[in-house]
Design a protein around this nucleic acid. Sequence first.
DNA 1: TAGATTGTTAATCGATTAACAATC
DNA 2: TAGATTGTTAATCGATTAACAATC
Lengths: 257, 257
Amino acid sequence: MEQKEISKAVISRLPRYYRYLGELLEEGVERISSNELSIRMKVTASQIRQDLNNFGGFGQQGYGYNVKYLYTEIARILGIDRQHNLIIIGAGNLGQAIANYTNFERRGFIIKGMFDVNPRLVGLVVRGVEIRGIEDLEQFIRDNEVQIAALTIPKSKAPEIADRLVKAGIKAIWNFAHTDLQVPDDVVVENVHLSESLMRLSYRVCSMQDQLERERAAKAREAAKKEENEAQPAGSGKEEQDVREAQAPVQERTQQK
Amino acid sequence: MEQKEISKAVISRLPRYYRYLGELLEEGVERISSNELSIRMKVTASQIRQDLNNFGGFGQQGYGYNVKYLYTEIARILGIDRQHNLIIIGAGNLGQAIANYTNFERRGFIIKGMFDVNPRLVGLVVRGVEIRGIEDLEQFIRDNEVQIAALTIPKSKAPEIADRLVKAGIKAIWNFAHTDLQVPDDVVVENVHLSESLMRLSYRVCSMQDQLERERAAKAREAAKKEENEAQPAGSGKEEQDVREAQAPVQERTQQK
DNA sequence: TAGATTGTTAATCGATTAACAATC
DNA sequence: TAGATTGTTAATCGATTAACAATC
Protein backbone atom coordinates (compact mmCIF):
# COMPACT_ATOMS: atom_id res chain seq x y z
CA MET A 1 0.00 0.00 0.00
CA GLU A 2 2.90 2.40 0.79
CA GLN A 3 4.75 4.42 -1.81
CA LYS A 4 8.23 5.94 -1.39
CA GLU A 5 11.04 3.99 0.25
CA ILE A 6 10.71 4.13 4.03
CA SER A 7 13.89 3.91 6.06
CA LYS A 8 14.71 0.69 7.85
CA ALA A 9 14.90 2.52 11.17
CA VAL A 10 11.33 3.69 10.85
CA ILE A 11 10.03 0.25 9.95
CA SER A 12 11.73 -1.41 12.87
CA ARG A 13 10.05 1.06 15.24
CA LEU A 14 6.55 0.42 13.92
CA PRO A 15 5.98 -2.90 15.72
CA ARG A 16 6.91 -1.25 18.98
CA TYR A 17 4.39 1.54 18.41
CA TYR A 18 1.88 -1.17 17.66
CA ARG A 19 2.65 -2.97 20.89
CA TYR A 20 2.28 0.18 23.00
CA LEU A 21 -0.95 1.12 21.26
CA GLY A 22 -2.28 -2.34 21.97
CA GLU A 23 -1.48 -1.87 25.65
CA LEU A 24 -3.17 1.53 25.68
CA LEU A 25 -6.20 -0.04 24.06
CA GLU A 26 -6.31 -2.68 26.80
CA GLU A 27 -6.08 0.07 29.40
CA GLY A 28 -9.10 1.70 27.80
CA VAL A 29 -7.21 4.81 26.68
CA GLU A 30 -9.08 6.42 23.80
CA ARG A 31 -6.69 9.08 22.63
CA ILE A 32 -3.06 9.95 23.14
CA SER A 33 -0.77 12.80 22.15
CA SER A 34 2.65 12.22 20.65
CA ASN A 35 4.01 13.78 23.81
CA GLU A 36 2.32 11.37 26.22
CA LEU A 37 3.29 8.42 24.06
CA SER A 38 6.87 9.66 23.85
CA ILE A 39 7.10 9.63 27.64
CA ARG A 40 5.82 6.07 27.88
CA MET A 41 8.04 4.79 25.12
CA LYS A 42 11.11 6.83 26.01
CA VAL A 43 11.53 8.32 22.58
CA THR A 44 11.01 11.91 21.36
CA ALA A 45 7.57 13.13 20.39
CA SER A 46 9.16 14.51 17.26
CA GLN A 47 10.28 11.08 16.21
CA ILE A 48 6.82 9.62 16.70
CA ARG A 49 5.21 12.32 14.57
CA GLN A 50 7.88 12.05 11.89
CA ASP A 51 7.62 8.28 11.78
CA LEU A 52 3.85 8.23 11.48
CA ASN A 53 3.80 10.97 8.88
CA ASN A 54 5.76 8.75 6.55
CA PHE A 55 2.51 6.90 6.06
CA GLY A 56 -0.06 9.65 6.33
CA GLY A 57 -1.66 12.03 8.81
CA PHE A 58 -3.28 9.86 11.43
CA GLY A 59 -3.65 12.52 14.10
CA GLN A 60 -5.68 15.64 14.60
CA GLN A 61 -4.37 19.01 15.74
CA GLY A 62 -5.38 19.90 19.25
CA TYR A 63 -6.56 16.34 19.91
CA GLY A 64 -3.75 13.89 19.32
CA TYR A 65 -4.17 10.39 17.97
CA ASN A 66 -7.16 8.11 18.34
CA VAL A 67 -5.64 4.97 19.82
CA LYS A 68 -7.97 2.49 18.17
CA TYR A 69 -7.66 4.10 14.77
CA LEU A 70 -3.89 4.39 14.88
CA TYR A 71 -3.65 0.80 16.08
CA THR A 72 -5.57 -0.53 13.10
CA GLU A 73 -3.74 1.76 10.70
CA ILE A 74 -0.35 0.50 11.84
CA ALA A 75 -1.62 -3.06 11.52
CA ARG A 76 -2.55 -2.25 7.95
CA ILE A 77 0.84 -0.67 7.24
CA LEU A 78 2.61 -3.70 8.67
CA GLY A 79 0.38 -5.99 6.66
CA ILE A 80 -0.78 -7.91 9.71
CA ASP A 81 -4.39 -7.24 8.85
CA ARG A 82 -3.99 -9.83 6.12
CA GLN A 83 -3.41 -13.56 6.35
CA HIS A 84 0.09 -14.92 5.87
CA ASN A 85 0.54 -18.65 5.42
CA LEU A 86 3.63 -19.89 7.14
CA ILE A 87 5.59 -23.10 7.44
CA ILE A 88 8.26 -24.02 9.93
CA ILE A 89 11.27 -25.96 8.74
CA GLY A 90 13.02 -27.67 11.60
CA ALA A 91 10.75 -29.05 14.28
CA GLY A 92 13.23 -28.87 17.14
CA ASN A 93 12.71 -26.80 20.25
CA LEU A 94 12.93 -23.51 18.41
CA GLY A 95 10.53 -24.58 15.69
CA GLN A 96 8.10 -25.87 18.27
CA ALA A 97 8.45 -22.70 20.31
CA ILE A 98 7.29 -20.71 17.27
CA ALA A 99 4.49 -23.17 16.57
CA ASN A 100 3.28 -22.84 20.14
CA TYR A 101 3.26 -19.07 20.23
CA THR A 102 -0.44 -18.45 19.74
CA ASN A 103 -0.14 -14.70 19.33
CA PHE A 104 1.30 -15.14 15.86
CA GLU A 105 -1.99 -16.58 14.70
CA ARG A 106 -3.82 -13.60 16.16
CA ARG A 107 -1.69 -11.38 13.94
CA GLY A 108 -2.62 -13.27 10.81
CA PHE A 109 0.29 -15.70 10.62
CA ILE A 110 -1.24 -19.12 10.03
CA ILE A 111 1.05 -22.07 10.56
CA LYS A 112 0.18 -24.41 7.74
CA GLY A 113 2.82 -27.04 8.30
CA MET A 114 6.04 -28.13 9.96
CA PHE A 115 8.88 -30.05 8.39
CA ASP A 116 11.82 -32.02 9.69
CA VAL A 117 14.41 -34.46 8.38
CA ASN A 118 14.33 -36.46 11.60
CA PRO A 119 12.02 -39.46 10.94
CA ARG A 120 11.29 -39.76 14.65
CA LEU A 121 9.62 -36.35 14.60
CA VAL A 122 7.69 -36.90 11.37
CA GLY A 123 4.08 -37.67 12.11
CA LEU A 124 4.03 -35.92 15.47
CA VAL A 125 1.46 -33.17 15.90
CA VAL A 126 2.33 -29.81 17.47
CA ARG A 127 -0.61 -27.56 18.25
CA GLY A 128 -2.70 -29.27 15.61
CA VAL A 129 0.02 -29.12 12.97
CA GLU A 130 1.55 -32.34 11.73
CA ILE A 131 5.28 -32.61 11.23
CA ARG A 132 6.11 -33.76 7.69
CA GLY A 133 9.16 -35.11 5.96
CA ILE A 134 11.17 -32.54 4.06
CA GLU A 135 10.58 -34.32 0.75
CA ASP A 136 7.02 -32.98 0.59
CA LEU A 137 8.21 -29.38 0.83
CA GLU A 138 7.70 -28.06 -2.71
CA GLN A 139 4.32 -29.66 -3.23
CA PHE A 140 3.09 -28.41 0.13
CA ILE A 141 4.16 -24.82 -0.52
CA ARG A 142 2.23 -24.73 -3.78
CA ASP A 143 -0.83 -26.50 -2.43
CA ASN A 144 -1.14 -24.24 0.59
CA GLU A 145 -0.09 -20.89 -0.88
CA VAL A 146 2.70 -20.61 1.66
CA GLN A 147 4.34 -17.18 1.70
CA ILE A 148 6.72 -17.40 4.62
CA ALA A 149 9.08 -20.11 5.84
CA ALA A 150 10.63 -20.01 9.29
CA LEU A 151 14.02 -21.67 9.06
CA THR A 152 14.94 -23.24 12.39
CA ILE A 153 17.56 -25.71 11.24
CA PRO A 154 21.34 -25.91 11.66
CA LYS A 155 23.38 -23.54 9.51
CA SER A 156 24.94 -26.42 7.57
CA LYS A 157 21.62 -27.30 5.93
CA ALA A 158 20.21 -23.79 5.64
CA PRO A 159 21.57 -22.72 2.22
CA GLU A 160 20.32 -25.86 0.48
CA ILE A 161 16.85 -25.58 1.99
CA ALA A 162 16.76 -21.87 1.22
CA ASP A 163 17.40 -22.66 -2.44
CA ARG A 164 14.56 -25.15 -2.47
CA LEU A 165 12.25 -22.65 -0.82
CA VAL A 166 13.09 -19.98 -3.37
CA LYS A 167 12.55 -22.35 -6.27
CA ALA A 168 9.21 -23.38 -4.79
CA GLY A 169 8.17 -19.72 -4.87
CA ILE A 170 8.39 -18.68 -1.22
CA LYS A 171 8.15 -14.92 -0.66
CA ALA A 172 10.06 -14.61 2.60
CA ILE A 173 12.38 -16.54 4.90
CA TRP A 174 12.44 -15.95 8.64
CA ASN A 175 15.98 -17.13 9.14
CA PHE A 176 17.08 -18.46 12.53
CA ALA A 177 20.05 -20.35 11.10
CA HIS A 178 23.39 -18.79 12.05
CA THR A 179 24.34 -17.86 8.53
CA ASP A 180 23.49 -15.32 5.84
CA LEU A 181 21.36 -16.67 3.01
CA GLN A 182 21.81 -15.87 -0.68
CA VAL A 183 18.44 -15.31 -2.28
CA PRO A 184 17.13 -13.32 -5.28
CA ASP A 185 16.19 -9.68 -4.79
CA ASP A 186 12.48 -10.37 -4.67
CA VAL A 187 12.72 -12.77 -1.72
CA VAL A 188 12.73 -11.19 1.72
CA VAL A 189 15.06 -12.54 4.42
CA GLU A 190 14.56 -11.49 8.01
CA ASN A 191 17.40 -12.73 10.19
CA VAL A 192 17.16 -13.66 13.84
CA HIS A 193 20.72 -14.43 14.83
CA LEU A 194 20.46 -15.33 18.51
CA SER A 195 24.18 -15.89 18.97
CA GLU A 196 24.85 -12.37 17.69
CA SER A 197 22.28 -10.98 20.07
CA LEU A 198 24.02 -12.76 22.94
CA MET A 199 27.39 -11.36 21.87
CA ARG A 200 25.99 -7.83 21.85
CA LEU A 201 24.74 -8.46 25.35
CA SER A 202 28.17 -9.73 26.33
CA TYR A 203 29.80 -6.59 24.96
CA ARG A 204 27.43 -4.39 26.86
CA VAL A 205 27.91 -6.30 30.11
CA CYS A 206 31.67 -5.96 29.79
CA SER A 207 31.65 -2.28 28.91
CA MET A 208 29.20 -1.63 31.73
CA GLN A 209 31.56 -3.33 34.13
CA ASP A 210 34.50 -1.31 32.81
CA GLN A 211 32.51 1.87 33.22
CA LEU A 212 31.55 1.06 36.79
CA GLU A 213 35.15 0.24 37.58
CA ARG A 214 36.36 3.51 36.10
CA GLU A 215 33.82 5.40 38.14
CA ARG A 216 34.89 3.58 41.26
CA ALA A 217 38.54 4.31 40.51
CA ALA A 218 37.76 7.97 39.87
CA LYS A 219 35.98 8.18 43.18
CA ALA A 220 38.89 6.54 44.93
CA ARG A 221 41.29 9.02 43.36
CA GLU A 222 39.00 11.85 44.33
CA ALA A 223 39.00 10.64 47.92
CA ALA A 224 42.76 10.26 47.91
CA LYS A 225 43.22 13.76 46.51
CA LYS A 226 40.95 15.21 49.15
CA GLU A 227 42.94 13.53 51.86
CA GLU A 228 46.15 14.84 50.37
CA ASN A 229 44.76 18.35 50.15
CA GLU A 230 43.69 18.23 53.75
CA ALA A 231 47.20 17.23 54.76
CA GLN A 232 48.88 19.87 52.58
CA PRO A 233 46.34 22.38 51.20
CA ALA A 234 48.57 24.01 48.53
CA GLY A 235 46.15 23.50 45.59
CA SER A 236 48.24 24.65 42.64
CA GLY A 237 46.02 22.86 40.10
CA LYS A 238 48.65 20.33 39.18
CA GLU A 239 46.82 17.50 40.88
CA GLU A 240 43.85 17.77 38.56
CA GLN A 241 45.99 17.20 35.53
CA ASP A 242 47.45 14.11 37.17
CA VAL A 243 43.99 12.70 37.57
CA ARG A 244 43.18 13.14 33.92
CA GLU A 245 46.40 11.50 32.86
CA ALA A 246 45.85 8.58 35.17
CA GLN A 247 42.67 7.70 33.31
CA ALA A 248 44.23 7.66 29.89
CA PRO A 249 46.78 4.88 29.41
CA VAL A 250 44.50 1.82 29.37
CA GLN A 251 44.31 1.92 25.59
CA GLU A 252 46.22 4.70 23.93
CA ARG A 253 44.86 4.59 20.39
CA THR A 254 41.19 5.01 21.15
CA GLN A 255 42.03 7.68 23.65
CA GLN A 256 43.35 10.04 21.01
CA LYS A 257 40.03 11.27 19.70
CA MET B 1 38.57 -2.90 28.20
CA GLU B 2 37.28 -0.28 25.72
CA GLN B 3 37.28 3.43 26.37
CA LYS B 4 35.13 6.04 24.56
CA GLU B 5 31.48 5.35 23.83
CA ILE B 6 31.14 3.19 20.73
CA SER B 7 28.00 3.61 18.66
CA LYS B 8 25.32 0.96 18.81
CA ALA B 9 25.52 0.44 15.06
CA VAL B 10 29.19 -0.50 15.29
CA ILE B 11 28.62 -2.92 18.15
CA SER B 12 25.83 -4.71 16.37
CA ARG B 13 28.10 -5.29 13.38
CA LEU B 14 30.93 -6.82 15.42
CA PRO B 15 29.34 -10.27 15.87
CA ARG B 16 28.85 -10.48 12.12
CA TYR B 17 32.52 -9.68 11.50
CA TYR B 18 33.33 -12.34 14.03
CA ARG B 19 31.18 -14.90 12.24
CA TYR B 20 32.77 -14.19 8.85
CA LEU B 21 36.26 -14.31 10.30
CA GLY B 22 35.42 -17.67 11.86
CA GLU B 23 34.37 -18.96 8.47
CA LEU B 24 37.55 -17.64 6.86
CA LEU B 25 39.54 -19.35 9.56
CA GLU B 26 37.79 -22.63 8.79
CA GLU B 27 38.56 -22.15 5.12
CA GLY B 28 42.20 -21.79 6.05
CA VAL B 29 42.47 -18.15 4.93
CA GLU B 30 45.36 -16.51 6.72
CA ARG B 31 44.97 -12.88 5.82
CA ILE B 32 42.30 -10.68 4.30
CA SER B 33 42.05 -7.08 3.14
CA SER B 34 39.18 -4.85 4.10
CA ASN B 35 38.28 -4.85 0.42
CA GLU B 36 38.02 -8.63 0.06
CA LEU B 37 36.05 -8.86 3.28
CA SER B 38 33.76 -6.06 2.16
CA ILE B 39 32.86 -8.03 -0.98
CA ARG B 40 32.05 -11.16 1.02
CA MET B 41 30.00 -9.30 3.60
CA LYS B 42 28.34 -6.86 1.21
CA VAL B 43 29.39 -3.78 3.14
CA THR B 44 31.91 -1.07 2.25
CA ALA B 45 35.60 -1.54 2.97
CA SER B 46 35.54 1.91 4.49
CA GLN B 47 33.00 0.83 7.05
CA ILE B 48 35.04 -2.21 8.03
CA ARG B 49 38.16 -0.12 8.57
CA GLN B 50 36.26 2.57 10.45
CA ASP B 51 34.53 0.03 12.66
CA LEU B 52 37.70 -1.81 13.59
CA ASN B 53 39.64 1.37 14.21
CA ASN B 54 37.25 2.23 17.00
CA PHE B 55 39.07 -0.41 18.97
CA GLY B 56 42.60 -0.09 17.68
CA GLY B 57 44.75 -0.74 14.63
CA PHE B 58 44.50 -4.44 13.95
CA GLY B 59 45.73 -4.37 10.38
CA GLN B 60 48.97 -3.67 8.60
CA GLN B 61 49.45 -1.41 5.60
CA GLY B 62 50.13 -3.28 2.40
CA TYR B 63 49.14 -6.57 4.02
CA GLY B 64 45.62 -6.38 5.37
CA TYR B 65 44.37 -8.15 8.46
CA ASN B 66 45.60 -11.39 9.93
CA VAL B 67 42.43 -13.47 10.19
CA LYS B 68 43.37 -15.40 13.32
CA TYR B 69 44.55 -12.32 15.15
CA LEU B 70 41.54 -10.22 14.23
CA TYR B 71 39.24 -13.10 15.20
CA THR B 72 40.68 -13.34 18.69
CA GLU B 73 40.76 -9.57 19.09
CA ILE B 74 37.07 -9.25 18.26
CA ALA B 75 36.34 -12.06 20.70
CA ARG B 76 38.16 -10.06 23.33
CA ILE B 77 36.29 -6.86 22.46
CA LEU B 78 32.96 -8.69 22.65
CA GLY B 79 33.97 -10.26 25.95
CA ILE B 80 33.40 -13.79 24.70
CA ASP B 81 36.92 -14.78 25.66
CA ARG B 82 35.70 -14.76 29.26
CA GLN B 83 33.22 -17.00 31.01
CA HIS B 84 29.67 -15.78 31.55
CA ASN B 85 27.43 -17.73 33.88
CA LEU B 86 23.89 -17.85 32.62
CA ILE B 87 20.52 -19.08 33.80
CA ILE B 88 17.37 -19.64 31.80
CA ILE B 89 14.07 -18.67 33.32
CA GLY B 90 11.21 -20.43 31.62
CA ALA B 91 11.90 -24.01 30.58
CA GLY B 92 9.43 -24.15 27.71
CA ASN B 93 10.42 -24.79 24.12
CA LEU B 94 12.27 -21.53 23.77
CA GLY B 95 14.19 -21.97 27.01
CA GLN B 96 15.08 -25.50 26.03
CA ALA B 97 16.11 -24.39 22.56
CA ILE B 98 18.63 -22.03 24.15
CA ALA B 99 19.80 -24.71 26.57
CA ASN B 100 20.36 -27.09 23.68
CA TYR B 101 22.35 -24.71 21.52
CA THR B 102 25.84 -25.98 22.25
CA ASN B 103 27.64 -23.15 20.47
CA PHE B 104 26.82 -20.77 23.28
CA GLU B 105 29.00 -22.80 25.62
CA ARG B 106 31.83 -22.62 23.10
CA ARG B 107 31.61 -18.83 23.32
CA GLY B 108 31.93 -18.84 27.08
CA PHE B 109 28.27 -18.79 28.06
CA ILE B 110 27.85 -21.50 30.70
CA ILE B 111 24.31 -22.49 31.47
CA LYS B 112 24.29 -22.92 35.21
CA GLY B 113 20.62 -23.55 35.75
CA MET B 114 17.07 -23.48 34.44
CA PHE B 115 13.95 -22.38 36.28
CA ASP B 116 10.24 -22.83 35.78
CA VAL B 117 7.07 -22.36 37.74
CA ASN B 118 5.48 -25.45 36.22
CA PRO B 119 5.94 -28.24 38.83
CA ARG B 120 5.73 -30.84 36.09
CA LEU B 121 8.92 -29.50 34.54
CA VAL B 122 10.83 -29.10 37.81
CA GLY B 123 13.30 -31.91 38.28
CA LEU B 124 13.69 -32.63 34.57
CA VAL B 125 17.18 -32.43 33.15
CA VAL B 126 17.97 -30.65 29.87
CA ARG B 127 21.45 -31.15 28.50
CA GLY B 128 22.76 -31.92 31.97
CA VAL B 129 21.03 -28.94 33.57
CA GLU B 130 18.29 -29.55 36.10
CA ILE B 131 15.12 -27.50 36.00
CA ARG B 132 14.46 -25.87 39.37
CA GLY B 133 11.52 -24.20 40.99
CA ILE B 134 11.51 -20.42 40.77
CA GLU B 135 11.65 -20.08 44.57
CA ASP B 136 15.34 -20.99 44.58
CA LEU B 137 16.20 -18.15 42.19
CA GLU B 138 17.94 -15.63 44.45
CA GLN B 139 20.01 -18.15 46.34
CA PHE B 140 21.09 -19.83 43.13
CA ILE B 141 22.21 -16.58 41.50
CA ARG B 142 24.42 -15.73 44.46
CA ASP B 143 25.82 -19.24 44.87
CA ASN B 144 26.73 -19.58 41.20
CA GLU B 145 27.87 -16.06 40.38
CA VAL B 146 25.24 -15.80 37.67
CA GLN B 147 25.68 -12.73 35.47
CA ILE B 148 23.07 -13.23 32.77
CA ALA B 149 19.46 -14.41 32.86
CA ALA B 150 17.62 -15.44 29.72
CA LEU B 151 13.97 -14.61 30.23
CA THR B 152 11.80 -16.98 28.19
CA ILE B 153 8.52 -16.57 30.04
CA PRO B 154 5.18 -14.96 29.14
CA LYS B 155 5.11 -11.16 29.24
CA SER B 156 2.64 -11.16 32.13
CA LYS B 157 5.23 -12.56 34.53
CA ALA B 158 8.30 -10.87 33.10
CA PRO B 159 8.31 -7.58 35.07
CA GLU B 160 8.01 -9.33 38.43
CA ILE B 161 10.79 -11.80 37.65
CA ALA B 162 12.95 -9.01 36.26
CA ASP B 163 12.63 -7.18 39.57
CA ARG B 164 13.70 -10.27 41.47
CA LEU B 165 16.66 -10.76 39.15
CA VAL B 166 17.78 -7.18 39.60
CA LYS B 167 17.52 -7.41 43.37
CA ALA B 168 19.49 -10.64 43.30
CA GLY B 169 22.29 -8.77 41.55
CA ILE B 170 22.02 -9.98 37.97
CA LYS B 171 24.10 -7.96 35.48
CA ALA B 172 22.09 -8.56 32.31
CA ILE B 173 18.76 -9.85 31.09
CA TRP B 174 18.36 -11.49 27.70
CA ASN B 175 14.72 -10.68 27.30
CA PHE B 176 12.49 -12.83 25.07
CA ALA B 177 9.27 -11.72 26.78
CA HIS B 178 7.15 -9.48 24.56
CA THR B 179 7.44 -6.44 26.76
CA ASP B 180 9.95 -3.74 27.72
CA LEU B 181 11.52 -4.19 31.13
CA GLN B 182 12.20 -1.41 33.64
CA VAL B 183 15.59 -1.94 35.22
CA PRO B 184 18.24 0.32 36.82
CA ASP B 185 20.86 1.93 34.59
CA ASP B 186 23.57 -0.54 35.50
CA VAL B 187 21.60 -3.58 34.38
CA VAL B 188 21.82 -4.45 30.69
CA VAL B 189 18.70 -5.58 28.82
CA GLU B 190 19.04 -7.12 25.39
CA ASN B 191 15.65 -7.65 23.79
CA VAL B 192 14.71 -10.39 21.35
CA HIS B 193 11.17 -9.57 20.36
CA LEU B 194 10.28 -12.31 17.89
CA SER B 195 6.81 -10.97 17.17
CA GLU B 196 8.31 -7.62 16.16
CA SER B 197 10.76 -9.37 13.91
CA LEU B 198 7.90 -11.19 12.23
CA MET B 199 6.01 -7.93 11.74
CA ARG B 200 9.02 -6.36 10.08
CA LEU B 201 9.12 -9.34 7.78
CA SER B 202 5.43 -8.91 7.07
CA TYR B 203 5.95 -5.26 6.19
CA ARG B 204 8.76 -6.11 3.84
CA VAL B 205 6.79 -8.88 2.14
CA CYS B 206 3.89 -6.51 1.56
CA SER B 207 5.99 -3.64 0.25
CA MET B 208 7.90 -6.05 -1.97
CA GLN B 209 4.61 -7.24 -3.41
CA ASP B 210 3.47 -3.66 -3.97
CA GLN B 211 6.71 -2.86 -5.70
CA LEU B 212 6.48 -5.85 -8.00
CA GLU B 213 2.91 -4.92 -8.84
CA ARG B 214 3.89 -1.35 -9.62
CA GLU B 215 6.66 -2.57 -11.87
CA ARG B 216 4.26 -4.91 -13.62
CA ALA B 217 1.75 -2.09 -14.04
CA ALA B 218 4.44 0.23 -15.38
CA LYS B 219 5.46 -2.40 -17.89
CA ALA B 220 1.87 -2.87 -18.96
CA ARG B 221 1.47 0.89 -19.44
CA GLU B 222 4.71 0.97 -21.37
CA ALA B 223 3.44 -1.76 -23.64
CA ALA B 224 0.11 -0.02 -24.09
CA LYS B 225 1.86 3.25 -24.94
CA LYS B 226 4.05 1.54 -27.48
CA GLU B 227 1.02 0.06 -29.12
CA GLU B 228 -0.67 3.44 -29.19
CA ASN B 229 2.40 5.11 -30.69
CA GLU B 230 2.57 2.50 -33.37
CA ALA B 231 -1.03 3.20 -34.27
CA GLN B 232 -0.61 7.02 -34.20
CA PRO B 233 3.09 7.99 -33.95
CA ALA B 234 2.63 11.70 -33.05
CA GLY B 235 4.96 11.61 -29.98
CA SER B 236 4.55 15.14 -28.58
CA GLY B 237 5.91 14.13 -25.12
CA LYS B 238 2.56 14.45 -23.40
CA GLU B 239 2.18 10.72 -22.94
CA GLU B 240 5.21 10.50 -20.67
CA GLN B 241 3.72 12.95 -18.22
CA ASP B 242 0.52 10.92 -18.15
CA VAL B 243 2.49 7.88 -17.11
CA ARG B 244 4.05 9.69 -14.20
CA GLU B 245 0.72 10.99 -13.02
CA ALA B 246 -0.87 7.59 -13.27
CA GLN B 247 1.56 6.25 -10.68
CA ALA B 248 0.80 8.89 -8.11
CA PRO B 249 -2.73 8.68 -6.75
CA VAL B 250 -2.52 5.48 -4.67
CA GLN B 251 -1.65 7.50 -1.59
CA GLU B 252 -1.44 11.21 -2.12
CA ARG B 253 0.24 12.38 1.06
CA THR B 254 3.39 10.33 0.90
CA GLN B 255 3.70 11.09 -2.76
CA GLN B 256 4.29 14.80 -2.17
CA LYS B 257 7.93 14.56 -1.15
C1' DT C 1 -12.21 32.14 20.64
C1' DA C 2 -8.13 30.20 23.24
C1' DG C 3 -5.50 26.13 23.96
C1' DA C 4 -3.58 22.14 22.38
C1' DT C 5 -1.28 19.42 19.33
C1' DT C 6 -0.44 18.00 14.88
C1' DG C 7 2.12 18.07 10.32
C1' DT C 8 6.10 19.80 8.32
C1' DT C 9 10.13 22.57 7.52
C1' DA C 10 14.64 23.77 9.14
C1' DA C 11 18.69 22.82 12.13
C1' DT C 12 21.48 19.57 14.25
C1' DC C 13 23.58 15.60 14.96
C1' DG C 14 25.64 11.20 13.82
C1' DA C 15 26.91 7.61 10.72
C1' DT C 16 28.58 6.23 6.31
C1' DT C 17 31.44 6.79 2.40
C1' DA C 18 35.25 8.74 -0.15
C1' DA C 19 39.85 10.11 -0.45
C1' DC C 20 44.51 10.03 0.48
C1' DA C 21 48.73 10.39 3.11
C1' DA C 22 51.28 7.19 5.97
C1' DT C 23 53.62 3.00 5.98
C1' DC C 24 54.32 -1.83 5.67
C1' DT D 1 61.97 0.45 -4.27
C1' DA D 2 57.11 -0.11 -6.00
C1' DG D 3 52.68 -1.80 -4.84
C1' DA D 4 49.26 -2.57 -1.69
C1' DT D 5 46.44 -1.47 1.89
C1' DT D 6 45.77 0.47 6.19
C1' DG D 7 44.48 4.34 9.44
C1' DT D 8 42.42 8.64 9.43
C1' DT D 9 40.66 13.02 7.91
C1' DA D 10 37.23 15.28 5.15
C1' DA D 11 32.85 15.16 2.52
C1' DT D 12 28.44 13.34 2.07
C1' DC D 13 24.48 11.45 3.30
C1' DG D 14 20.67 10.27 6.29
C1' DA D 15 18.27 10.29 10.57
C1' DT D 16 16.91 12.70 14.65
C1' DT D 17 15.50 16.69 17.03
C1' DA D 18 13.77 21.36 17.37
C1' DA D 19 10.72 24.81 16.08
C1' DC D 20 6.62 26.69 14.55
C1' DA D 21 2.83 27.69 11.47
C1' DA D 22 -1.47 25.39 10.43
C1' DT D 23 -5.61 23.86 12.29
C1' DC D 24 -8.65 21.23 15.09
